[in-house]
Design a binder for these strands. Structure first.
Length: 271
DNA sequence: AAGTGGACCTGCTAGC
DNA sequence: TGCTAGCAGGTCCACT
């Protein structure tokens, strides 16, 4: 579910409220993608610091380390002072003096991983090798062009890979390629510098716009206040197979790349 | 090294 | 109405 905008919207919706709280209890549900990596009780009494984001990961700083959180495909976080009894898909509760942070994740591709200040362990491995943040000024056409050199994969898959730029998942990768008028099947190393300029800009614009709108609500995305996003109303190609292109250049097609659906307009998106 | 496909898990929906 | 196949926002890992 959550791509960068959804993760960032989630972060913003509880970061300030949880800051300075003290952990009272931790409750675990079913196993997530990775084990927590510590005794849950060892988190109790630690105070909560900043909540930051790297790619689609959230980092919740605690006194002696922190928690690296990922929402996977179906995860969402809620932060509330009136958290009810856990349901079948509630797999992590961080009960604090300011409220309870709860991860709900039906498919359990998400994760919450402890990382101590001394030994970052699994968390460090997960963050290693991530590409630039899309809003980092260093992410531009020149960077993209250089990073794509020698890569023969389709540009769509290079964007999704996350080693060049993080944050664009399946929806926003499709949308950004549409904005940049680039065929998602284009071989990465065949993109001119000028097209890389356009694509880098399109990635930033697409993510920024989704962020302003509060993220996507493809199914049931909610931020930690329970607010729905509105980007779905803005998707120009994603999920629009068979519909006329909004530019009027053809009919939106659906293909499969790397076992993921890709939507694009063969009329205005060129190789 | 880069590319490919499988794996993880559950819920929803389209189609029969 | 009820069952089943197929699909879903991510990304790690093993293998070629």
């Amino acid at each position: 579910m959550p791509e960068l905008p959804e993760v960032e919207v989630t972060r913003q919706s509880f970061a300030t409220r949880i800051r300075g709280a003290r952990v009272d209890a931790v409750r675990l549900g079913k196993p997530l993608r990775w084990p927590l990596g510590c005794d849950p009780d060892s988190l109790v009494s630690q105070s909560v610091g900043e909540v930051t984001r790297r790619g689609k990961y959230l980092w919740l700083a605690l006194e002696r380390g922190g928690l690296l959180m990922h929402l996977g495909m179906s995860g969402s976080l809620a932060f509330s002072t009136a958290t009810g009894l856990p349901g079948p898909h509630d797999h992590f509760d961080l009960v604090t003096t300011h409220g309870t942070l709860r991860l709900t994740d039906p498919r359990r591709f998400g994760a919450v991983v402890w990382s101590s200040a001394q030994d970052a362990g699994t968390a460090a491995k997960l963050l290693a090798g991530l590409g630039l943040e899309p809003f980092d000024p260093a992410f531009d056409g020149a960077h993209l062009h250089a990073a794509l050199r020698g890569r023969r994969v389709a540009i769509k898959q290079a964007l999704l890979g996350g080693e060049i730029v993080v944050g664009a998942g399946n929806i926003y990768a499709c949308e950004a390629l549409f904005e940049a008028r680039i065929d998602p099947r284009t071989r990465s190393d065949r993109l001119s510098r000028a097209r890389c300029d356009r694509l880098a800009e399109a990635v930033r614009q697409t993510l920024a716009r989704a962020l302003e709108l509060g993220g996507s609500t493809l199914r049931d995305f909610r931020d930690a206040h329970g607010m729905a996003g509105e980007f779905q109303l803005q998707a120009r190609v994603y999920g629009r197979e068979g519909e006329p292109c909004v530019r009027g250049d053809g009919i939106v097609r659906r293909i499969v790349q790397g076992q993921r659906a890709t939507f694009f307009c063969p009329g205005c998106q060129r190789r």
